[in-house]
Design a protein around this nucleic acid. Structure first.
Lengths: 192, 192
DNA sequence: CGTCTATTTGAATGTACTCAAAAGCGGTGG
DNA sequence: CCACCGCTTTTGAGTACATTCAAATAGACG
């Protein structure tokens, strides 16, 4: 049951069997049906989330009612609204399932406790955040310097499996363009 | 000399005098003249950097020769190219001084050592990255959902002091628009 | 099978861009 | 201290890429 998440930890740190045992005791398993919310904008995010199976999206809705996807999370990704989780303030984001999914959740008290009881996790989380930070930075840079077409080409290259798995509309939203635009870009790229 | 950086640490963790002493022993002080590089694209980033005085920018240059600012860093901000620093790969970014500045640098060996010798720093860095991650995420969301004018208004509100300190050209580059566009936006906002 | 949503296509529109030139500002050296 | 040079900012005109709105087609799900 905890194979994947323990494998994920082992990418950065090595836990003793006891520590692993303790760590997994903090986790709550939850299944989500397609379209089910994990977090709704306005609520306080009570969990950090590890995706064991399926696919979630984090998005916000602007005043015009348009959705903008900030992040996808598939198997072995972590997600959640860190800001709301840490500060206890209402979240600006919605998180829901794009497929039937299975996740592990950690609530705030467990979160605090686990860093105290297993200090190695501080390192794990630092490294996780480091990587997330790096890819965010790159995404910002790309959003500023590349055309929609180039951004899409990069997306395909970087996340080849997302391509088949996600509907066009979601990808468009992630890239910050309209579905119509992405449809045209695809058509053009097939011909080109 | 180390007042500011120790104050910065104390926002998240409490060091004993000995630990503080040890921590500062890792630091190298360096002054930068306006326009001086801390890091040039293509080089490997050898330092993480704390700004004690002045202002730096991190930017990349696209194929058309255009600069895109990913981050500003003024007093009490940390900066650097985390990706290059960690992975030892050439950096995509340039970092230089927009004003005469004074910084403290930590090189990679010291960086590794300090986390081992002062494990509390893992926590500090995790929290630092957590905040950085949160604001990156928000920036991505804003870049996607807001018009140039709204992004500028947010920038003014969030970083009021940057407004007077930074030339229009640099702000435009940070917002992902041309100087011409920002000039027009400003004109419009004064009238409106 | 029918309904609802996603995707495609077309036409008109708009926001921000490019290119060009003038005006403003700041730093440097005579 | 002033004049000059280079860079920044402003303004104008034309353009391009992506958007909006609308409608048709395709696909998914109950």
């Amino acid at each position: 049951m905890f194979d994947l998440i323990l494998k994920n930890l082992s990418r950065h740190i090595t836990l003793t069997p006891e520590e692993a045992e303790r760590f997994t005791s903090y986790l709550q398993r939850r299944t989500l049906r397609k379209k089910q919310y994990l977090l709704q904008g306005g609520d306080v995010s009570r969990y950090e989330c590890f995706v064991n199976k399926g696919c979630l999206r984090t998005y916000l809705v602007d005043d015009k009612g348009q959705e903008h996807i900030v992040q996808f999370a598939i198997e072995e990704w972590w997600t959640g609204d860190m800001y709301s989780f840490i500060n206890g303030r209402p979240s600006l984001y919605h998180i829901d399932a794009l497929e039937d999914s299975e996740v592990f959740l950690i609530d705030r008290p467990s979160w605090e406790k686990m860093f105290v009881e297993i200090p190695k996790l501080e390192r794990f989380y630092r490294l996780l955040l480091q990587n997330a930070f790096i890819s965010m930075q790159r995404r910002i840079a790309e959003n500023m310097s590349l055309s929609a077409e180039e951004r899409y080409a990069n997306f395909q290259q970087r996340y080849p499996h997302f391509e088949q798995r996600l509907p066009l509309k979601q990808i468009a939203s992630y890239l910050g363009i309209t579905p119509e635009s992405l449809s045209r870009i695809r058509k053009k790229m097939v011909k080109g």
